[in-house]
């Protein structure tokens, strides 16, 4: 679903993404971890073509369509984006619009301009939006302004927008970083459910490693714009992460996720040897 080849993006002399190559298959749920400034958000924003990479900076393909190549975002990126839902740390809803309108905006990619301009969305879009809100459990909030919702509810509305978009890929950029543990778990539960039931391919960047361990079978770890680990999440022990990140990784464990779900150490050792990238 996502194919990134030798991708580089520099800000001045600093390389935010350094020769990143990775492939994500349909139906995977992948965690993207790393300390602040390691390039997680930058990578996700490049995948949706909101930002362009360096000249000769490699290529990104999503769903078999080229998003960008050598620093040039493709002209038809809009069509690709329509299939790629995005969820952000700050939810990025339009505060003053109704929740339902915000959710219907997911359909902008496929509804003709004259209809959207007149705020005249087709009935099936409206129905799908209400259904999506019901799925994330906030149907009763549909006619409130987005700004009146709590953070967790806003994030669920943002996910409903992705559902209305009928996206095949969901890029979630630190979706739970501004939420309390309870809301965080709910949001991650919803993402996991969409991944399993709707076969949505999910790439979620996380600051807290324990959520990655708990929800995502595969983890990609970034450090200074480079991939330093790509493999099973179960192989990521605190000791291993300390090796990767040094003392900075202490803050990456919140201790709020059920420890019983984290796999035992012996298992991790075995997996580590199977993943040469980790070595």
């Amino acid at each position: 679903m996502i194919k990134i080849q030798n991708f580089t993006r520099s800000f001045g002399s600093h390389k935010a993404l350094d020769n990143v190559s990775l492939t994500v298959n349909r139906g995977e749920m992948v965690a993207l971890i790393g300390a602040s400034g390691s390039g997680k958000s930058t990578l996700l924003r490049h995948i949706s073509g909101i930002m362009a990479g360096d000249k000769n900076g490699g290529s990104i393909e999503v769903m078999g369509r080229m998003v960008q190549q050598n620093g040039r975002v493709q002209r038809d990126v809009r069509k690709t984006r329509a299939g790629v839902g995005m969820v952000f740390q700050q939810f990025n809803l339009v505060d003053r619009l109704q929740v339902l309108t915000n959710v219907m905006l997911g359909a902008l990619g496929r509804v003709p301009l004259w209809r959207t301009t007149l705020n005249f969305f087709p009935k099936n879009v409206r129905a799908l939006a209400i259904e999506s809100l019901a799925r994330v459990g906030i149907a009763e909030k549909a006619f409130q302004r987005a700004s009146t919702l709590s953070g967790g509810q806003q994030q669920r509305a943002a996910i409903a927008r992705v559902l209305t978009q009928k996206a095949e890929v969901l890029l979630a950029d630190e979706p739970i970083a501004s939420l309390d543990p309870e809301s965080s778990r709910r949001v991650m539960d919803i993402l996991a459910e969409l991944n399993k039931k709707d076969d949505l391919t999910v790439v979620v960047s996380l600051h807290q490693v324990d959520y990655a361990l708990c929800y995502c079978p595969r983890t990609i770890a970034l450090k200074d714009g480079r991939i330093v680990y790509d493999g099973l999440s179960s192989a990521l022990t605190p000791a291993f992460l300390r090796d990767l990140y040094g003392a900075a990784c202490e803050s990456m464990f919140t201790g709020t996720v059920d420890k019983a779900k984290v796999h035992a150490g012996t298992q991790q050792q075995a997996i580590l040897t199977l993943n040469p990238v980790a070595a």
Binding site: R81, A82, F88, N92, L108, R110, R161, Q165
Partner: peptide, 8 residues
Amino acid sequence: EGIRATGA
């Protein structure tokens, strides 16, 4: 940006 990401 949230709206741009929907392919608007």
